[in-house]
């Protein structure tokens, strides 16, 4: 139905799959933070990447997350 060529659609699908894989792995956390920051706190500088990851990981010290059997 789509008029786009097959190769372009395939590329788009692969790109989406890669994005989902990265997000499941937890790699997109900083990107999500930047998107959120740009939307909700425009004008203020966001946290740097290193600092963000440090805080992001350390936050788990206070809530390790449940893991089931």
């Amino acid at each position: 139905m789509s008029t786009r060529p097959l190769a372009a659609r395939l590329r788009a699908t692969l790109r989406a799959a890669w994005r989902i894989t990265r997000e499941i792995a937890g790699e997109r956390a900083y990107e999500i933070y930047l998107e959120h920051h740009a939307e909700h706190h425009p004008g203020t500088p966001p946290m740097g990447e290193r600092e963000f990851w440090r805080r992001h990981t350390d936050a788990r010290d206070a809530r390790p997350g449940e893991r089931c059997c």
């Binding site: 997000e23 999500i32 936050a59």
Partner: peptide, 29 residues
């Protein structure tokens, strides 16, 4: 939405996270 604890997450990603959290060694034993 605060970008961390509360954040609308793609259903496919959340499915992966939730599955990884519930399934461990239990169903294997």
């Amino acid at each position: 939405n605060n970008g961390t604890d509360f954040h609308p997450t793609d259903r496919r990603v959340l499915f992966g996270h939730h599955f990884a959290a519930i399934a461990g060694a239990g169903p294997l034993v």
